[in-house]
Measured scan of single mutants.
Amino acid sequence: MQRVNMIMAESPGLITICLLGYLLSAECTVFLDHENANKILNRPKRYNSGKLEEFVQGNLERECMEEKCSFEEAREVFENTERTTEFWKQYVDGDQCESNPCLNGGSCKDDINSYECWCPFGFEGKNCELDVTCNIKNGRCEQFCKNSADNKVVCSCTEGYRLAENQKSCEPAVPFPCGRVSVSQTSKLTRAETVFPDVDYVNSTEAETILDNITQSTQSFNDFTRVVGGEDAKPGQFPWQVVLNGKVDAFCGGSIVNEKWIVTAAHCVETGVKITVVAGEHNIEETEHTEQKRNVIRIIPHHNYNAAINKYNHDIALLELDEPLVLNSYVTPICIADKEYTNIFLKFGSGYVSGWGRVFHKGRSALVLQYLRVPLVDRATCLRSTKFTIYNNMFCAGFHEGGRDSCQGDSGGPHVTEVEGTSFLTGIISWGEECAMKGKYGIYTKVSRYVNWIKEKTKLT
C-alpha cells in the first residue's frame, strides 16, 4: 500500500490518463441519441435557420407576430419608411378606419389613436360632414345658397324668414311668412316636400332668348283662358290664391305678392273693366268669414305684352289694390325667389296649380277651390304637342294621358313649387288646347323671366 501511494504521488498524470480511459469505455446513459432527441424537440425550422439574422431580410411573422416588435424591426421587413409607417399605425392600436367614419364618399386613412378623412370636392370637416359648395344638395341650405369668396357655403332665406341657429334652416321672422300653410287642420295635408338634388348652379339658368321682337298675326285659340281631375282644397291650404270678379264672377285667378299687390295673367284683364279681388276665398257660393274683398285701382301688364300681336306672350300683369290686405292664416303671400332659384325650383319637376275653373272641358265651374299636382314636361315634348308657338318664356306641365289639367277660369292662378315646406311661385296658368285632352298640356308663363320686374313694381313704400 505504501508503494502504491508513492507511485500516485510521483505520477499524477498517469492516474488522470487511467481515469479518462475508464470513462470513455463506459456506456453513456444520461444523453439520448440524435434521433430520439429530435422526437422530443420537434420544432419547425425557421426561415433563416442556421444563418445569422443580421444578414437576412426581415420576416413579418418572425419579427412582429411571434413577439412584439419595434418600429426598427418592422422597418427591416418593409425596407421602406412609408410602408412601415402605414403598417405601424394599425399594428400599434388597430384600424381606426374600420367603422368607416368618413361621410359623403370620403376616404379614410388610419393613424395612431386617430384617423384622417380625405374629402371629395365640396366637403370638409373631420368626417367630411361639412358642405362647402352650393353645387351639392344646395349646400344643405333649406332655401338659398351662395358661395363666399373663400368658396364656403353661405345660406340665406327669402323675405319674412331668418336663418336658424344651425345656419342652414329657415324659420319665420314674421307672423305670416310667405308660402307657408298655417291653418292647423290643413298642415297635415301639406304636399310632399321637395329635397334639393345635386345641381350645376353655374349652368342652372337656361341660355334662352326671349323672342321679344317676333311679330306674329293673332292666333285663334280655343278655350285658351284655361282644375280638371283635381281635388277639393281645404280652407287655408292655398292662402296665396285669390279669385278675380268682373263682368262675371271667378273669371280668373291670381296670387298675393304682398298686402297691396296681386300677380295674374295679362290676358285676364281689360282696361276700363272694374275688377274686384277676393282673398281668403274657399267656396265661392258661401260666406265663410275668411274672405277679404278689395278693388283694383291700377293694372300693370308687362311692358312687352301686346294682345294685338299675341294674347299669351309675356302673359303676366300686376294688380294694385285700393287697401292693403290683412295677412292671416287664410290670406298669405306666395314666396318669389330670384331668377336663378325660381328656375331651379321649376326644374324640380312638379308643381301645384289651383283655381275655381271648370271641372271638365266646357263644363261647370268649381264651387270649392280645386288643386292638382302636375309634372313638368320637357321642352321637346311640349313643342311636338301643339302647332302653336311655345315661346321661351312659357313652359308645359300636365299629363300625356289627359284627364287632369287646369281649365277655363283658372287662368292667372299660381303654379307653385314647394321647397322644404315653403311654396314659391314658378308659373302662372296661361293657356292650353281644350282641357285635359290626351297628348295636350297646360301652358304656363315662366315666372323666372319676370321676377325682377315683379319685385321692382310691387315694392311697398
Score class of each variant (00 low, 15 high):
Arg3Ala: 14
Met6Ala: 14
Ile7Gly: 14
Met8Val: 08
Glu10Val: 15
Glu10Thr: 08
Pro12Met: 14
Gly13Glu: 07
Gly13Ser: 13
Leu14Pro: 13
Ile15Ser: 05
Cys18Val: 13
Leu19Gln: 02
Gly21Ile: 13
Leu24Pro: 02
Ser25Leu: 14
Val30Gly: 11
Phe31Met: 13
Leu32Tyr: 14
Asp33Asn: 08
Ala37Asn: 02
Leu41Met: 06
Asn42Leu: 09
Lys45Gln: 03
Gly50Pro: 02
Leu52Ser: 08
Leu52Ala: 08
Phe55Ser: 14
Gln57Pro: 01
Asn59Leu: 03
Asn59Glu: 01
Lys68Tyr: 05
Phe71Tyr: 08
Phe71Arg: 05
Glu73Phe: 00
Arg75Gln: 07
Glu79Lys: 07
Thr85Pro: 03
Lys89Tyr: 07
Lys89Arg: 12
Tyr91Cys: 04
Asp93Lys: 09
Asp93Ser: 15
Asp95Lys: 13
Gln96Asp: 14
Pro101Phe: 05
Gly105Thr: 04
Gly106Lys: 03
Ile112Leu: 12
Asn113Lys: 13
Glu116Leu: 13
Trp118Leu: 13
Pro120Asn: 12
Gly125Leu: 02
Glu129Phe: 03
Leu130Thr: 13
Asp131Thr: 13
Asp131Ala: 05
Lys137Gly: 14
Arg140Leu: 14
Gln143Cys: 00
Cys145Arg: 02
Lys146Arg: 13
Asp150Val: 09
Asn151Trp: 09
Val154Gln: 14
Cys155Glu: 01
Ser156Trp: 14
Gly160Gln: 04
Tyr161Ala: 02
Cys170Phe: 00
Glu171Asn: 08
Pro172Tyr: 05
Ala173His: 09
Ala173Leu: 10
Pro175His: 09
Cys178Arg: 00
Cys178Glu: 01
Gly179Asn: 01
Gly179Cys: 02
Gly179Lys: 00
Gly179Glu: 01
Val183His: 07
Ser184Gln: 08
Gln185Gly: 13
Thr186Tyr: 11
Thr186Ala: 13
Pro197Met: 13
Asp200Arg: 10
Asp200Met: 06
Tyr201Gly: 13
Val202His: 09
Asn203Gly: 09
Ala207Cys: 06
Glu208Trp: 08
Gln216Asn: 09
Ser217Thr: 11
Thr218Ser: 12
Asn222Pro: 08
Asp223Ala: 11
Asp223Ser: 12
Arg226Tyr: 12
Arg226Ser: 07
Arg226Gly: 13
Val228Pro: 07
Phe238Lys: 04
Trp240His: 02
Asp249Ser: 12
Ala250Ser: 12
Phe251Val: 08
Cys252Lys: 00
Gly253Ser: 08
Gly254Glu: 00
Ser255Ala: 05
Val257Thr: 01
Val257Ile: 05
Lys260Ile: 04
Lys260Val: 04
Trp261Arg: 00
Ala265Lys: 01
His267Gln: 06
Thr271Ser: 11
Ile275Asn: 03
Val277Trp: 01
Val277Gln: 00
His282Trp: 13
His282Asn: 12
Glu286Ala: 09
Glu288Lys: 07
Glu288Ile: 06
His289Val: 15
Thr290Gly: 06
Lys293Arg: 15
Arg294Leu: 00
Val296His: 01
Arg298Lys: 12
Ile300Val: 13
Ile300Lys: 03
Pro301Gln: 12
His303Arg: 08
His303Asn: 09
Asn304Asp: 11
Tyr305Met: 02
Ala307Gln: 11
Ile309Val: 14
Ile309Phe: 10
Lys311Glu: 06
Tyr312Glu: 03
Tyr312Phe: 12
His314Asp: 06
Asp315Pro: 01
Asp315Met: 01
Ile316Gly: 00
Ala317Gly: 03
Glu320Tyr: 03
Asp322Pro: 01
Glu323Lys: 12
Val326Gly: 05
Tyr330Pro: 00
Val331Leu: 02
Thr332Asp: 01
Cys335His: 01
Ile336His: 00
Glu340Gly: 08
Tyr341Lys: 05
Phe345Asn: 01
Ser350Ala: 13
Ser350Thr: 15
Ser354Gly: 13
Gly357Tyr: 14
Ser365Gly: 07
Leu367Thr: 15
Val368Asp: 05
Val368Gln: 15
Val374Phe: 02
Pro375Val: 07
Leu376Gly: 03
Val377Pro: 02
Arg384Phe: 05
Ser385Ile: 10
Lys387Ser: 08
Phe388Glu: 11
Phe388Ala: 06
Phe388Asn: 09
Phe388Pro: 06
Met394Val: 10
Gly398Arg: 05
Phe399Pro: 15
Glu401Pro: 14
Gly402Leu: 12
Gly413Glu: 02
Pro414Phe: 11
Pro414Thr: 12
His415Ser: 01
Val416Glu: 02
Thr417Gly: 01
Glu420Ala: 13
Gly421Asp: 06
Thr422Lys: 05
Ser423Gln: 07
Phe424Gly: 00
Leu425Val: 01
Ile428Asn: 01
Ser430Met: 10
Ser430Ala: 09
Glu434Ala: 14
Cys435Pro: 04
Met437His: 10
Met437Pro: 07
Met437Arg: 08
Gly439Val: 03
Lys440Asn: 15
Lys440His: 15
Tyr441Arg: 03
Gly442Ala: 15
Ile443Arg: 04
Trp453Asp: 00
Ile454Lys: 01
Glu456Pro: 03
Lys457Val: 10
Lys457Leu: 11
Lys457Gln: 10
Leu460Tyr: 14
Leu460His: 09
